[in-house]
């Protein structure tokens, strides 16, 4: 089982971030929230690994 990757893993992060933000252009807050939920589920399915998904669910709980 792969460990959850928490070090930089996206080549050209600025490109990715811009694309992510642009995906929300013109959406209402409600539509944006729904979009995020769909995106999250698609990414989770792509990862597949149950341990990695559990670790990710825990990692995102942590708040400053």
């Amino acid at each position: 089982m792969a460990d959850l990757i928490l070090t930089p893993n996206i080549a050209s992060g600025d490109d990715f971030y811009e694309e992510l933000i642009s995906a929300h252009d013109g959406l209402s807050k409600e539509d944006s929230d729904a979009y995020n939920a769909r995106l999250l589920l698609i990414l989770a399915n792509h990862i597949g690994d149950r341990e990695a998904l559990s670790a990710a669910i825990k990692a995102a709980k942590r708040q400053s």
Binding site: I5, L6, N9, I10, Y17, I21, H24, A59, R62, S64
Partner: peptide, 18 residues
């Protein structure tokens, strides 16, 4: 939403290098 995502990046960057 871009504000929410921006702040999520900032919050995560305090804990996680990625």
């Amino acid at each position: 939403m871009s504000h929410v995502l921006r702040n999520a990046v900032l919050e995560l960057s305090g804990h996680y290098e990625f």
